[in-house]
Design a protein around this nucleic acid. Structure first.
Length: 921
RNA sequence: AGGCCCGUAGCUCAGUUGGUUAGAGCGCUACGUUGACAUCGUAGAGGUCAGCGGUUCAAGUCCGCUCGGGCCUACCA
């Protein structure tokens, strides 16, 4: 906010800060010529933590803003994608904090069931033991130890990034409170009939030995084979030789034929209608396979006959259900063949069995041909091996009703997806959703709150005590708890409210729920976002956040996905070490444009580090050169524009315009454009122009200074507000530099983190001075260019037909000359004549005449350049003439557009005549 | 198989509801070091906006098709 427009302030210093400045040791020393982020970044992070300024004590009456961190894997390491997401989350939370809101960024970690268990398994295997040998209790103890050991890593890395999380509210998906929420959710869903236990076909990972959900299966296209196998048709009873008729089925998985119980064909397939009531004989095992007609079969594919393996293929499972066919398990949970596969195959792996089945089929003359065949095979996302569809008893959650709710929430705007192109994907997935298999045969996770009695009853309860009561047994000893744990995403789905104390109606829940925005990668839209929305709507009646900002994937400089095997992984910790966290943050934020992946080039980070150096040095210059007693001004009357010279009025106007734009860009999650505005304001407008315009007064005599009242105050105040505007993106540098500004303690006594965010200030907007300055800037640039090209003596004449502009130029004559390093400058109201010699030009209504003598230079090249420029103008003038002669353009285009074209035409014609006289002279 | 996104300067990308001669950063070229910054300054070169067709007074922008790249979803044995 600007000093003129007070809003609720976060300016009350945290008690620990004691109202005094948070001193950084580096503040004691002179500012070095170069900035060195590593000298102050972590110093500030520690100071801020010690002062507790990110610990939220909600102030009643203020708006709340809350972001839940997408909890990283507790034993993991932050990758560059986390760095991007953390940057954006921190940016938003710092922005809202500076706007005086109750701004909470709640950190935490995820127990990440499979991933963590695998890591610990690998560790104990290195010690020569195994998970199973240790037993559940001992293994879990090891896993908790592991968690404790690595837990601090995530915080440390977030600290490096400058994350302003409230660590007093940190949560872990397996901690007591969240476990309570998980049990509550499970019991409620069960009592509503949405969670059930049953025997169904699931995606089984033989390596992990657990069921996984549909989402954890990745379909990969593989080059496989299609085996054509001939089956004999069973003869009439009492006819042991059979009819001699053969049929041919095609399969990509011959080993599953050992579990076949039928052969299917399309009900309308004339070729096979006569087979109804008959059966085929399964080669190798001699099992009788009835023929069944079923719509599932595609008549065009293969022979139009499909072998049915109810227990090892999801389609076949459905067919078998429809026709009452039995199923036979021939593959077990470790991926080996069962005794039911027959003595020749029992104990073999799936792969070995395939080879042996094919061998035996070939030997028996049943293998007709083998074709190459490209098909899709589901693979385990974690284990990497082919998923085995298996029938097993699992817990399922019927999410169809919740999915409809989630769909509606996006449709009616309670939840915004950003960018909104994700709406279609959202709709497609949610309207085709299937029951969610939520049980996992793992140990690390939330154990399912279900108990079994000796006589086979299932009791679902919040805890053992309740289970004993409900079961009507004497003690827990008579009950066995389900050994399985819940899918990790089941607890993550509750994250936005379980972290705030749900199911208890806590103060935090009231203050911060629903949360404001979720920032995460689009890769977990279904895994996590959709499930949070579903459970949020179901349990709280509200979307858990008002908006989801989905970021792209961070790629390498060439746009290639980062991967360890390619060796193109950029580690945020390394990048911070080399460039500083602020530069990394600025880069990531400025690359976040909607719906795009993010190519990260270290050269670009270096560019933004240079920007940091620019900020550093601009401040260093200001502090060294401002007049005695100059200070940051807070109140508007201290910087009344009426007293100020044009450059001061101009930069304050630009500052105000920038604040308005940045506000709009942050509001709409256009972090890239906000960063670009900030960059261009600071470097392009403040440094390149305003500071240059200030130099004659700051470095010159008292007389020079008299012409520029309050110049020091203006420079410091603009710096102050620019730093505050930049703070959410570059927290460390802005704090380090801002602390040195005299008078900044009136903005906030201890830290920029709690200083108000600058807002547009209408009294500073000055369209007239902006127009005049724009014209001057254009003219200065043109003069520099002409002088550079022609190598003339630096003597220049300006003229303009506009009296207002002429007066302005006359007033700024000294500055104009200094910006172009001119020896002399004349300003007049009339054009110079060709006889005055020298090239001329006309930009933004200002005529330019070079009055200085030739000092050499390539005359032919100059003429060629002029000619080219005139040619371009000719073309454009001709086009514009044609357009303005077009009746339909004049009739249909809006008047302002026509007016603009007319004005443009006049300008182009004026300019052309100027350039022509240059050529003539 | 269906859906989505992308194709703009050497590279990576902006470009709001269609409206001046299409922008930025990096890279490149020339010049510049009387003290904020060489992590710098000044200026410059560089684009038939993938292609074709359509709508419109007007298209990088809207529509259709084609080509090229990427992603997601999907049970064809």
């Amino acid at each position: 906010m600007s000093p003129t427009e007070p809003t609720p302030q976060a300016s009350d210093p945290a008690p620990e800060a004691g109202g005094s400045s948070l001193q950084s040791p580096t503040l004691q020393s002179e500012m070095d010529k170069r900035f060195e982020p590593s000298t102050y970044e972590q110093v500030w992070q520690r100071r801020w933590a010690e002062a507790g300024i990110f610990e939220v004590v909600p102030v009643p009456g203020r708006p709340s803003f809350c972001i839940m961190i997408p909890p990283p894997n507790v034993t993991g390491k932050l990758h560059i994608g986390h760095a991007l997401q953390s940057t954006l989350q921190d940016l938003l939370v710092r922005w809202h904090r500076m706007r005086g809101e109750n701004a909470l960024w709640l950190p935490g970690t995820d127990h990440a069931g499979i991933a963590t268990q695998l890591m610990v398994e690998r560790q104990v295997e290195k010690e020569g033991t195994s998970r199973k040998a240790l037993g559940r209790e001992a293994f879990l103890e090891r896993t908790w130890e592991w968690k404790k050991e690595y837990h601090g890593n995530i915080r440390q890395q977030l600290d490096l990034m400058g994350a302003s999380c409230d660590w007093t509210r940190e949560r872990f998906t397996l901690d007591e409170g969240l476990n309570r929420a998980v049990r509550e959710a499970f019991v409620r869903l069960h009592r509503e009939g949405l969670i059930t236990r049953g025997e169904y076909m699931v995606n089984w990972s033989p390596v992990l030995e657990t069921a996984v959900s549909d989402l954890e299966v990745e379909t990969k296209t593989v080059q496989g084979k299609l085996y054509h196998v001939s089956y004999l048709i069973e003869g009439e009873p009492g006819d042991p030789e059979g009819t001699g008729e053969r049929i041919v089925v095609a399969t990509t998985r011959p080993e599953t034929m050992l579990g076949d119980t039928a052969v299917a064909f399309h009900p309308e397939d004339e070729r096979y209608a006569h087979l109804v009531g008959k059966a085929a004989i399964l080669p190798l095992l001699g099992r009788r396979l009835p023929f069944v007609p079923d719509e599932m079969v595609d008549r065009e594919f293969g022979t139009g006959l499909v072998k049915i393996t109810p227990f090892h293929d999801p389609n076949d499972f459905e067919v078998a259900k429809r026709h009452g066919l039995p199923g036979i398990s021939v593959i077990d949970k470790t991926g080996r063949m069962t005794p039911e596969a027959g003595p020749d195959f029992a104990g073999l792996t799936r792969e070995e069995a395939r080879i042996k089945v094919v061998e035996q089929l070939r030997a028996a003359g049943h293998l007709l041909k083998v074709e190459d065949h490209v098909h899709n095979v589901g693979h385990s996302q974690r284990g990497g091996e082919a998923i085995e569809p298996l029938v097993s008893t699992q817990w399922f959650c019927d999410v169809s009703g919740m999915a409809a709710q989630a769909l509606a929430a996006v449709e009616d705007g309670r939840l915004r997806l950003i960018p909104d192109t994700w709406g279609k994907t959202w709709e497609h997935w949610l309207s085709n959703i299937r029951p969610w298999c939520i049980s996992r045969q793992l140990w690390w996770g939330h154990q399912i709150p279900a108990w079994y009695t000796a006589d086979g009853k299932t009791i679902v309860a919040h805890d053992e005590e309740e289970a004993v009561r409900l079961a009507g047994v004497a003690s827990a000893a008579e009950l066995t708890q389900d050994p399985d744990v819940l899918d990790t995403w089941f607890s993550s789905a509750l994250w936005p409210f379980s972290t705030l104390g749900w199911p208890e109606p806590t103060a935090d829940l009231k203050t911060f729920y629903p949360t404001s925005v979720l920032i995460t990668g689009h890769d977990i839209l279904f895994f996590w976002v959709a499930r949070m929305v579903m459970s949020g709507l179901h349990f709280t009646g509200e979307s858990p956040f008002a908006a989801v900002h989905l970021t792209g994937l961070v790629r390498d400089a060439e746009g290639v996905k980062m991967s360890k095997t390619k060796g193109n992984v950029l580690d945020p910790v390394d990048l911070i070490e080399e460039y500083g966290a602020d530069a990394v943050r600025f880069t990531l934020a400025s690359l976040d444009s909607p719906g795009r992946d993010i190519p990260l080039n270290p050269e670009q980070i270096a560019g933004y580090r240079a920007f940091g150096n620019k900020i550093w040095n601009a401040t260093r210059f200001a502090l060294a050169r401002i007049p005695e007693g100059a200070r940051v001004r807070v109140r508007p009357e201290d910087l009344a524009v009426a007293d100020l010279a044009a450059p001061e009025r101009w930069i304050l106007s630009r500052l105000s315009a920038t604040a308005a734009e940045v506000h709009e860009k942050f509001e709409t999650f256009r972090f890239d454009e906000a960063c670009n505005r900030l960059y261009h304001f600071f470097w392009g407008e403040l440094c390149d122009w305003y500071i240059e315009l200030a130099k004659p007064a700051l470095l010159g005599s008292d007389a020079d200074r008299k012409l520029r009242p309050r110049i020091g105050d203006v420079l410091l105040s603009v710096l102050d507000q620019a730093l505050r505007m930049l703070h959410p993106v570059m927290p460390f540098l802005t704090e380090e530099v801002w602390q040195r500004l005299p008078g900044r303690e009136e903005i906030h006594p201890s830290t920029i983190c709690l200083a108000p965010y600058p807002q547009a200030n209408a009294v500073w907007r000055d369209e007239a001075v902006e127009a005049q300055m724009d014209a001057m800037i254009e003219a200065v640039t043109r003069v520099r260019a002409v002088l550079a090209e022609t190598g003339r003596e630096r003597k220049v004449g300006l003229w303009t037909a506009s009296p207002v502009l002429e007066a302005f130029l006359a007033e700024q004559q000294g500055l104009f000359a200094s910006l172009c390093r001119l020896e002399s400058l004349e300003v007049s109201s009339r054009a110079w004549s060709t006889s005055d010699g020298g090239p001329e030009d006309l930009v933004a209504g200002i005529g330019i005449k070079i009055l200085g003598a030739k000092k050499g230079g390539d005359e032919a090249a100059e003429r060629a350049k002029l000619e080219k420029e005139i040619e371009k103008l000719d073309l454009e003038i001709e086009r514009t003439h044609a357009q303005l002669a077009d009746e339909s353009f004049l009739a249909k285009a809006p008047a302002p557009v026509v007016e603009k074209r007319r004005a443009a035409l006049a300008q182009m014609e004026d300019r052309r005549s100027s350039l022509r006289s240059s050529l003539a002279g």
